[in-house]
Amino acid sequence: MALTNEQTQHLYHKLLDMQKVLSGEKKETESMTEEVGELSNGVDNHMADHGTLVTDRMTDQTVREIDRELLEEVNHALQKMKEGTYGVCEKTGQDIPYERLEAVPYARMTVEEQADMEDDLEADAPSYERAFHEQVKDLSNKETIDQKSSQTYEILDREQDSK
Results as ranks from 00 to 15, higher is better:
Gln114Leu: 01
Tyr106Pro: 00
Ser23Leu: 02
Glu65Arg: 13
Thr92Gln: 10
Ser127Thr: 11
Gly24Thr: 07
Leu101Trp: 08
Met117Lys: 14
Tyr98Gln: 07
Ser150Leu: 07
Glu143Cys: 14
Pro97Thr: 04
Met109Asn: 08
Met18Val: 04
Met81Tyr: 10
Lys91Gly: 05
Leu16Asp: 03
Ala48Cys: 00
Arg57Ser: 00
Gln147Thr: 15
Glu129Arg: 08
Asp119Tyr: 03
His13Leu: 11
Ser140Tyr: 14
Ala123Asp: 10
Gly87Met: 05
Ser127Gly: 03
Gly93Asn: 05
Met1Asp: 12
Met109Trp: 05
Thr110Gly: 11
Asp49Phe: 01
Thr55Gly: 04
Leu71Trp: 09
Asp44Ala: 12
Ile96Tyr: 08
Ala115Arg: 10
Gly84Cys: 02
Tyr98Cys: 06
His50Ile: 05
Lys80Pro: 00
Gln114Asn: 08
His133Tyr: 10
Gly87Leu: 07
Val74Arg: 05
Leu53Tyr: 02
Cys89Ala: 05
Ile155Cys: 01
Gly87Glu: 00
Thr152Tyr: 15
Gln9His: 11
Ala2Gln: 13
Val136Pro: 03
Glu65Trp: 08
Gly87Phe: 06
Ala125Glu: 06
Gln151Leu: 15
Ser162Ile: 07
Gln9Leu: 12
Ala115Asn: 11
Tyr12Glu: 09
Ala125Ser: 15
Ala107Tyr: 09
Ser162Val: 02
Glu65Asn: 15
Ala48Glu: 08
Leu3Gly: 07
Pro97Cys: 10
Ala125Asn: 06
Glu38Thr: 12
Glu159Cys: 01
Lys142Ile: 08
Leu139Ser: 13
Leu16Glu: 14
Arg130Asp: 00
Pro97Asp: 04
Glu159Thr: 09
Lys148Gln: 11
Ala123Gly: 01
Lys26Leu: 13
Gln7Leu: 12
Ser40Asn: 06
Val111Leu: 12
Met109Cys: 08
Thr59Glu: 09
Ser162Gly: 04
Leu78Phe: 12
Gln79Val: 06
Glu159His: 05
Ile155Glu: 13
Thr4Ser: 15
Lys26Thr: 14
Gly42Ala: 14
Gln79Pro: 00
Gly51Leu: 04
Val43Gly: 07
Met18Thr: 02
Leu22Cys: 06
Arg108Leu: 09
Gly93Tyr: 07
Lys137Ile: 08
Glu6Leu: 13
Leu121Asp: 03
Ala77Gln: 02
Ala2Tyr: 13
Thr152Phe: 14
Asp49Met: 04
Ile66Lys: 09
Pro97Leu: 01
His76Lys: 11
Ala48Gln: 09
Glu134Cys: 01
His50Trp: 14
Val88Phe: 13
Asp56Ala: 09
Glu30Arg: 02
Glu30Asp: 09
Thr92Lys: 11
Arg64Leu: 13
Asp120Asn: 11
Ser31Asn: 11
Thr62Leu: 10
Thr52Leu: 01
Glu143His: 12
Met1Ser: 13
Thr29Leu: 00
Thr59Ser: 11
Ser150Arg: 11
Lys137Phe: 05
Asp60Trp: 10
Ile96Ala: 06
Met32Thr: 02
Arg57Thr: 06
Leu121Ser: 03
Val63Tyr: 08
Asp116Gly: 00
Thr8Gly: 04
Glu154Lys: 15
Asp49Ile: 01
Leu70Ala: 10
Arg158Val: 07
Glu112Gln: 13
Leu70Ser: 10
Cys89Thr: 07
Gln19Pro: 07
Thr52Lys: 03
Ala2Thr: 14
Ala107Asn: 02
Ala77Gly: 04
Gly37Asp: 07
